[in-house]
Design a binder for these strands. Structure first.
Lengths: 201, 201
DNA sequence: AGATGTTCAAAACGTTTGTTTAAAATTGAT
DNA sequence: ATCAATTTTAAACAAACGTTTTGAACATCT
């Protein structure tokens, strides 16, 4: 029961737990949460069936663990509200860069949203802080007339919708292959700002 | 075994079958195909559990029956290719009007697409004709320079993506409540054409 | 009325699901 | 080497799934 055993145990676990997590991430993104079975996950991860319940306490907890990185990212996002347009650009850019690195998580998120799954409540908790942050930024944009749009809520929907499915966007995909991920992010941000302004008129 | 018995039987069936179909449509749209159980469908339809298999031959066949109307709609869509831009407007408009009437089916379709479900093959068969029709229209638009866009495939994706999720579109929703469904359709068509042209530059 | 085919409801069917159990294997400290 | 704790394995678990079976109820034709 010494802390050494704990430490050793955790480090030993890490391989198995990570194998389970990455297998689950791929399978969830491909087949959906309900479409993938614990047996599939364990077979893909090359571990025994019982280990999902042993290490995570159940299939649903594996799902929750997958969103830890995105939760932490959003917790660390801070912006200068005195430059609301810059804050908006920064928010969008950071999200797009993250999306390019973790497109499986975005895929899973899209699935859960369109199915309005029983796990949406937990996902809402994860995304609510950043959602509110973006709302504050947009409110500031509107107050300072930095950019025009009909309503903060509509702008929120437009931005999140565009961010979430921007990998299907014909405009953005056109040149994506030729550019760096940084440049693509800048391009996407411009697209969003322009699109936002277009909803005004 | 006479045709009278058949006819009588079919008319008698119709109530039960329709109850099952509309219950299934609502539940599939709300919870997804895999998230909906046959028991839920029968409870919602207020019929006995066995009747799904009896009348339709299984849960999956209920799903297929739901897409009969959309299949027939697409089969009957014909346009004048000598006016490709008009054909494009007509295609989009007809789709949007249908979408407003059958938004559950669109919802189900979105779910199946994002999950890339095992039923996509069948759905592809349903939508392939209209997909090809739209491709022909777009090709004609490009050949006659009626409208500019980088590639037919990108335009296809843009149009179908916009059509499918236009009910979430901030621009379209803004005034939707004040307008007739006909006007909304016209507005959406303009939005699509403009958006398409914007991908050019 | 009797015969016949259709529709329905209750129960049971065989699978598959996520999870748990109990014993075996592995690990690091003593 | 021994020991206790942890990790893994194989087997079994209850619950839920879609489907099938059975026989009763019903409607229609002769």
């Amino acid at each position: 029961m010494s802390q050494f055993k704990q430490t050793r145990g955790n480090e030993k676990n890490k391989e198995v737990k990570d194998q389970i997590l990455s297998a689950a991430k791929l399978l969830f993104a491909e087949k959906g949460y309900e479409g993938t079975t614990v047996r599939q996950i364990c077979q893909e991860a090359d571990v025994s069936l019982a280990l999902v319940s042993y290490h995570f306490g159940g299939k649903e907890n594996v799902f929750f663990y997958l969103f830890e990185p995105i939760r932490k990212l959003f917790m660390n996002m801070k912006y200068d509200l005195s430059d609301p347009l810059g804050a908006l650009r920064g928010f969008c850019k950071q999200f797009i860069i993250f999306r390019n690195e973790e497109h499986e998580l975005i895929r899973i998120l899209q699935q859960e949203l369109v199915m309005n799954s029983p796990r949406l409540e937990m996902l809402t908790d994860v995304f609510l802080p950043s959602w509110e942050q973006l709302r504050v930024i947009l409110q500031e944009c509107q107050d300072k007339k930095a950019i025009g749009f009909p309503s903060v809520d509509a702008a929120l929907n437009f931005i999140m919708g565009t961010l979430m499915q921007s990998h299907n966007n014909a405009f953005l995909n056109r040149t994506q292959s030729e550019l760096s991920s940084e440049q693509v992010a800048d391009l996407a941000v411009s697209f969003i700002i322009n699109g936002l302004q277009a909803t005004q008129e």
